[in-house]
Design a protein around this nucleic acid. Sequence first.
DNA 1: TCTGGGGTCCTAGGACCC
DNA 2: TCTGGGGTCCTAGGACCC
Length: 420
Amino acid sequence: MSWAIVDIENFYCSAERVFDPTLRNVPLIVLSNGDGCAIARSAEAKALHIAMGAPMFKIREIVKRHGVQYRSSSYELYADMNRRFNMVLSEFSDTVEIYSIDESFFRLPVLPSGLGDVEQAQRIRTTIKQHVGLPTRIGLGPTRTLSKVANALAKASEKVWNGVIDLHDEGLRRRMFAKWPIEEVWGIGKAMVKRLHPLGVRTTADLAAMHPDLARDVGTVVLERLVRELNGVECSDFQPEPEALKSTAVTRSFGEPVRDREVLREAMVRRAVRAAEKIRAQKLQACRLIAFAHGSRFKPNAPSASKVARLSPSTNDPRVIAGTAARMAEAMFEQGAVYTKCGVMLEGLEPESGAQQDLFSLPDPRSPALLAVLDGINDRFGRNTLRLASEGMGAKSYDTKRAYKSPSWTTRIDQVPIAR
DNA sequence: TCTGGGGTCCTAGGACCC
DNA sequence: TCTGGGGTCCTAGGACCC
C-alpha cells in the first residue's frame, strides 16, 4: 500500500500572506493566544533564529531591528483555509484523512495517465498553490510513519527535492536514515531520546534496526509499532471518517491577572459556556467536568488548583456546566493569590441520544427546546447575543489579548478583501 | 511588566466482582 | 507460618503530537 501526507509550509504565516501581500518576502511571525509567543514563523523569521514558542518580550529587539511583522492568531481564517486546502486535495484522492490543521494523509489514486507517484504529488502541490495560495510539501511511503519521515526530509532539504520525497525505495531509505537523527522522527519525543541514546540508538537507521521486542521493552507498544512502520510494515489504517471527539477543553490566559473571587468565577463561567457550546455543536454531552485555575508557572508559589466533578446525568446544558464550574472556581479560590489562567475540560463525551440515563436525576424535558433556541439565536446574530447572566456583560480586562489580528478575510462579510 | 491552546493514546494501580 | 485467580472498569499521570 501507499501512504501520502501533505503539509502546509509555515501554515499560519502562509495563510496570513494569502490576503495581505505586504507580508510576503518579509520576516513574519504569528503569535499565540494572548499575543504571548511566536507559534508560527516564516522562513525569513526562522533565518533570524526566532525559535518556536519564543516569548515576544524576549525577541522584541530582533523584531524591531529587522522589521519582523507580527500578527495575532486568527483561527477562523486558518480553519477556513484548511477547509479549502482539503477541498482541493479531495479532487485528487477519495481517501483523505485530515490529521491536523495543516496536514492531511491521503492515498494517491492509480491514474491511467501513467503519471508516476512523484509527478502526481507535484501536480497536487501546484494545484493547491494555484487554487488556495498555500505552499505545501508531500511525503510518500509504504506506511504512515514512512510518509511522515519523507515529508520531514522534504522539508529539511527543500531545494534538493523540490518538495516531494518518496520513501518506497529501500535503498533510498537506507541512505536517508543513516543521517537522520531520531529526534526528528514522528513519535519520538524528549523522553524517548533519553532512553534510546544510552543504547546507542541515535539515527533513524539505528532505530529501524532495533528488534521490535526490544523496542517494546524500552518504550511501549507505540515504539514497537513505530519500529515496524519504519521497516515498511503497516500498523495503522486510514480513518477517512473523523472519530468522535472524546474530550474537549477551553483554557485561556488572562489579559490581566485576576485577584478576585468573583472575577475568577465569571472568567470560569465564560470558558464553561464556550465548552458547552462546543460539544452541543457536535451533538455530544459530557459526564465529567474538570475546572482549573493557576498562576504563572514562571513564578514561585504561584497558586494552582483543579477540581473534578461528575455530571450525572451527562449534559451539554450551559446552565448546569457553568453553574458547576462557577462553584468549583469559588471553592478553589485562595485569598491573596494571583491567577493568570483558568480553564474547563469536558470529558467522557458521548452522543446526545445514546447517553446513559440517570434514574434519580432526570434532565428537564424542556431543556432541548431551550438550548435549540439559544444556539439558533447565537448562530444567527453572533456569539453572546443570548447569554447567561453569570457571564457578565461586555469585554473584560481578563479577556485574552489579540491586539494584532488581521481582518477576517474569508469569514466576515464586512471584512472581505476588496480588489481595487 | 510580559512566557499558547487543544488533543490522543498507553500504562499502572486501585476498586470491585465472582 | 501458611490466605486464589482472574476479570473489568476507572483514574491519574506520562508522553507525544500539532
